[in-house]
Simulated assay, not measured.
Amino acid sequence: MSRAQCPRCLRPQSHCLCELIPQLDSRTRVLLLQHPSEVNHALNTARLAALGLKNAELRVGETFDDLDVLLNPPGYQARLLFPGDDAQLIETPSSSEGSQPWLLVVPDGTWRKARKLLHLNPLLAQLPRVTLAPGAVSRYRLRKAPGPGALSTLEAIVQTLDILEAPHSFTPLLRPFEALIEGQIAAMGHDTFQRNHGQT
Protein backbone atom coordinates (compact mmCIF):
# COMPACT_ATOMS: atom_id res chain seq x y z
CA MET A 1 0.00 0.00 0.00
CA SER A 2 1.39 3.41 -0.94
CA ARG A 3 2.02 6.02 1.72
CA ALA A 4 -0.25 9.05 2.00
CA GLN A 5 1.17 11.94 -0.01
CA CYS A 6 1.00 15.67 0.59
CA PRO A 7 -0.92 17.08 -2.40
CA ARG A 8 1.15 20.29 -2.32
CA CYS A 9 4.80 19.27 -2.04
CA LEU A 10 4.14 15.67 -3.23
CA ARG A 11 6.22 14.24 -0.41
CA PRO A 12 4.95 11.48 1.89
CA GLN A 13 2.80 13.04 4.63
CA SER A 14 5.34 11.88 7.21
CA HIS A 15 8.03 13.90 5.41
CA CYS A 16 5.98 16.90 4.27
CA LEU A 17 8.14 19.95 3.50
CA CYS A 18 5.43 22.60 3.36
CA GLU A 19 6.38 24.19 6.71
CA LEU A 20 9.85 24.89 5.31
CA ILE A 21 8.69 26.37 2.00
CA PRO A 22 8.66 30.18 2.12
CA GLN A 23 6.38 32.51 0.18
CA LEU A 24 8.74 35.03 -1.40
CA ASP A 25 7.94 37.96 -3.63
CA SER A 26 10.18 38.64 -6.61
CA ARG A 27 10.24 41.30 -9.28
CA THR A 28 11.49 38.65 -11.68
CA ARG A 29 8.86 36.23 -12.96
CA VAL A 30 10.04 32.60 -13.12
CA LEU A 31 8.61 30.14 -15.63
CA LEU A 32 9.71 26.55 -15.02
CA LEU A 33 9.28 24.11 -17.89
CA GLN A 34 9.70 20.64 -16.43
CA HIS A 35 10.33 17.50 -18.44
CA PRO A 36 7.79 14.82 -17.37
CA SER A 37 10.58 12.48 -16.24
CA GLU A 38 11.42 14.91 -13.40
CA VAL A 39 7.97 14.96 -11.78
CA ASN A 40 8.57 11.90 -9.60
CA HIS A 41 12.24 12.64 -8.89
CA ALA A 42 13.05 12.44 -5.19
CA LEU A 43 14.16 16.08 -5.02
CA ASN A 44 11.99 17.76 -7.70
CA THR A 45 13.55 21.13 -6.93
CA ALA A 46 11.59 22.87 -9.68
CA ARG A 47 8.39 22.22 -7.73
CA LEU A 48 10.01 23.59 -4.56
CA ALA A 49 10.93 26.76 -6.46
CA ALA A 50 7.43 27.17 -7.87
CA LEU A 51 5.86 26.70 -4.43
CA GLY A 52 8.26 29.11 -2.72
CA LEU A 53 8.00 31.98 -5.22
CA LYS A 54 4.74 33.88 -5.56
CA ASN A 55 5.70 35.11 -9.03
CA ALA A 56 6.46 31.68 -10.50
CA GLU A 57 4.69 29.11 -12.64
CA LEU A 58 5.49 25.43 -13.22
CA ARG A 59 4.46 23.67 -16.42
CA VAL A 60 5.13 19.99 -17.11
CA GLY A 61 5.48 18.57 -20.61
CA GLU A 62 7.72 18.06 -23.61
CA THR A 63 5.86 20.57 -25.78
CA PHE A 64 3.71 23.53 -24.75
CA ASP A 65 0.89 24.62 -27.06
CA ASP A 66 0.55 28.03 -25.40
CA LEU A 67 4.28 28.73 -25.23
CA ASP A 68 3.97 31.96 -27.21
CA VAL A 69 1.60 33.33 -24.54
CA LEU A 70 3.72 32.00 -21.67
CA LEU A 71 6.85 33.70 -23.01
CA ASN A 72 5.21 37.07 -23.49
CA PRO A 73 3.57 38.23 -20.25
CA PRO A 74 2.90 41.98 -20.39
CA GLY A 75 5.66 44.05 -18.81
CA TYR A 76 8.43 41.41 -18.90
CA GLN A 77 11.37 40.60 -21.15
CA ALA A 78 12.07 36.86 -21.49
CA ARG A 79 15.48 35.31 -20.86
CA LEU A 80 16.39 31.61 -21.02
CA LEU A 81 18.54 30.36 -18.15
CA PHE A 82 20.69 27.89 -20.06
CA PRO A 83 24.40 27.82 -20.95
CA GLY A 84 25.57 28.33 -24.50
CA ASP A 85 28.23 30.09 -26.54
CA ASP A 86 26.01 33.15 -26.87
CA ALA A 87 24.80 33.18 -23.26
CA GLN A 88 25.30 36.46 -21.37
CA LEU A 89 26.66 36.32 -17.83
CA ILE A 90 24.02 37.31 -15.29
CA GLU A 91 25.04 40.50 -13.52
CA THR A 92 23.46 42.89 -11.06
CA PRO A 93 21.44 45.35 -13.16
CA SER A 94 22.72 48.90 -13.11
CA SER A 95 20.35 51.78 -12.51
CA SER A 96 20.93 52.92 -16.08
CA GLU A 97 19.48 49.72 -17.55
CA GLY A 98 15.86 49.38 -18.63
CA SER A 99 13.41 49.00 -15.79
CA GLN A 100 11.50 46.13 -17.37
CA PRO A 101 11.86 42.99 -15.21
CA TRP A 102 12.80 39.59 -16.59
CA LEU A 103 10.71 36.56 -17.27
CA LEU A 104 13.30 33.93 -16.35
CA VAL A 105 12.56 30.76 -18.33
CA VAL A 106 14.10 27.69 -16.71
CA PRO A 107 14.06 24.25 -18.37
CA ASP A 108 14.08 21.51 -15.73
CA GLY A 109 15.50 18.07 -16.44
CA THR A 110 18.78 16.30 -17.02
CA TRP A 111 21.02 18.15 -19.47
CA ARG A 112 19.89 15.75 -22.21
CA LYS A 113 16.19 16.23 -21.40
CA ALA A 114 16.58 20.02 -21.09
CA ARG A 115 18.22 20.16 -24.52
CA LYS A 116 15.33 18.08 -25.85
CA LEU A 117 12.87 20.67 -24.50
CA LEU A 118 14.73 23.36 -26.44
CA HIS A 119 14.75 21.21 -29.58
CA LEU A 120 11.02 20.44 -29.39
CA ASN A 121 10.09 24.04 -28.60
CA PRO A 122 11.88 26.30 -31.12
CA LEU A 123 10.54 29.44 -29.41
CA LEU A 124 12.72 28.57 -26.40
CA ALA A 125 15.84 28.24 -28.52
CA GLN A 126 15.19 31.71 -29.94
CA LEU A 127 15.24 33.44 -26.55
CA PRO A 128 18.31 35.40 -25.42
CA ARG A 129 20.30 33.11 -23.13
CA VAL A 130 21.74 33.96 -19.74
CA THR A 131 24.01 31.92 -17.51
CA LEU A 132 25.66 32.04 -14.10
CA ALA A 133 29.37 32.56 -13.60
CA PRO A 134 31.33 29.29 -13.57
CA GLY A 135 32.56 27.73 -10.36
CA ALA A 136 29.39 27.51 -8.29
CA VAL A 137 29.29 24.56 -5.89
CA SER A 138 26.09 22.59 -5.43
CA ARG A 139 24.79 21.78 -1.97
CA TYR A 140 23.58 18.41 -3.22
CA ARG A 141 26.18 16.21 -1.56
CA LEU A 142 24.70 12.87 -2.64
CA ARG A 143 25.49 13.04 -6.31
CA LYS A 144 28.65 13.84 -8.17
CA ALA A 145 27.96 16.84 -10.40
CA PRO A 146 28.53 16.25 -14.13
CA GLY A 147 30.86 19.24 -14.20
CA PRO A 148 31.90 22.38 -12.32
CA GLY A 149 29.04 24.79 -11.79
CA ALA A 150 26.37 22.11 -12.17
CA LEU A 151 23.54 23.16 -9.87
CA SER A 152 20.07 21.89 -9.17
CA THR A 153 17.27 23.90 -10.78
CA LEU A 154 16.40 25.45 -7.41
CA GLU A 155 20.00 26.44 -6.66
CA ALA A 156 20.38 28.06 -10.09
CA ILE A 157 17.19 30.08 -9.57
CA VAL A 158 18.26 31.22 -6.10
CA GLN A 159 21.67 32.35 -7.34
CA THR A 160 20.11 34.16 -10.31
CA LEU A 161 17.54 35.99 -8.20
CA ASP A 162 20.18 36.90 -5.60
CA ILE A 163 22.10 38.67 -8.40
CA LEU A 164 19.15 40.27 -10.17
CA GLU A 165 17.42 41.48 -7.02
CA ALA A 166 20.36 42.23 -4.71
CA PRO A 167 20.49 42.95 -1.81
CA HIS A 168 17.31 40.87 -1.37
CA SER A 169 18.19 37.25 -0.51
CA PHE A 170 16.34 34.21 -1.79
CA THR A 171 18.33 31.73 0.33
CA PRO A 172 15.19 30.72 2.32
CA LEU A 173 14.09 28.84 -0.81
CA LEU A 174 16.88 26.35 -0.09
CA ARG A 175 15.52 25.26 3.31
CA PRO A 176 13.30 22.43 2.04
CA PHE A 177 16.04 21.33 -0.38
CA GLU A 178 18.56 21.06 2.47
CA ALA A 179 16.01 19.20 4.61
CA LEU A 180 15.53 16.68 1.80
CA ILE A 181 19.27 16.10 1.56
CA GLU A 182 19.64 15.72 5.33
CA GLY A 183 16.74 13.25 5.31
CA GLN A 184 18.41 11.17 2.61
CA ILE A 185 21.71 11.17 4.52
CA ALA A 186 19.91 10.13 7.72
CA ALA A 187 18.12 7.31 5.88
CA MET A 188 21.36 5.88 4.49
CA GLY A 189 23.22 6.26 7.80
CA HIS A 190 26.20 8.45 8.61
CA ASP A 191 28.81 5.72 8.04
CA THR A 192 27.43 4.83 4.61
CA PHE A 193 27.30 8.50 3.67
CA GLN A 194 30.92 9.05 4.72
CA ARG A 195 32.05 5.92 2.91
CA ASN A 196 30.32 6.80 -0.38
CA HIS A 197 30.13 10.59 -0.38
CA GLY A 198 32.56 11.87 2.25
CA GLN A 199 35.38 14.16 1.27
CA THR A 200 38.64 12.41 0.56
Rank of each mutant, 00 (worst) to 15 (best):
D191L: 15
F177G: 04
D65E: 12
D108T: 07
A87T: 05
R112E: 03
L161H: 01
A136C: 14
L70I: 05
R195N: 06
R112L: 08
S14Q: 13
S96F: 13
F82P: 01
L118I: 12
D65S: 12
G183I: 08
A150P: 00
A156F: 01
A50V: 14
L33Y: 00
P83M: 11
T153M: 02
K113D: 07
N72F: 02
F193G: 05
L24T: 06
T192D: 14
S169M: 07
C9W: 00
D65N: 08
L70V: 11
L127F: 00
C6A: 11
W111I: 13
P36M: 11
L58F: 06
E155M: 01
Q23G: 09
P7V: 06
D25W: 07
T63N: 09
R115T: 05
A187Y: 00
L154I: 05
R143G: 00
C6K: 14
A42M: 05
A56G: 04
C18V: 04
P73S: 10
L151T: 00
H168S: 05
L70A: 08
L120I: 13
L80Q: 08
P73L: 07
I185F: 03
A136E: 13
D85W: 05
V137D: 10
L58D: 03
E178N: 12
G183W: 07
P176Y: 06
R141I: 09
P172D: 01
K54G: 12
M188S: 06
D86S: 14
I21Q: 03
N55L: 07
G198E: 04
R27E: 14
R112T: 08
N40C: 12
L132Y: 03
R29L: 09
R8D: 15
F177Y: 13
T200W: 10
P107N: 04
V158D: 02
N44W: 04
L20W: 06
I21K: 02
T45Y: 03
G109V: 04
G189C: 08
T131F: 02
A179C: 09
S138K: 08
S37V: 07
Y140W: 05
D191C: 11
R47V: 09
Q199M: 12
R11E: 14
L53W: 02
L180M: 12
A133G: 00
P176W: 03
A125V: 07
G183E: 14
L117G: 02
G84P: 04
A125Q: 11
P101Y: 04
L17E: 02
P148T: 15
P107V: 00
R27T: 11
T63G: 10
C6M: 13
Q199T: 13
L124V: 08
N72P: 00
P22C: 06
P172R: 00
N40H: 11
E57Q: 15
T171D: 09
I181W: 00
I185S: 03
L24D: 04
A133H: 03
K113A: 11
E182G: 10
L120M: 13
N121D: 09
A156K: 01
H197T: 07
L117Y: 12
V30K: 02
A133E: 10
C18L: 08
E57M: 10
K116N: 07
L124S: 05
H197W: 10
A46H: 06
P7W: 13
G149C: 12
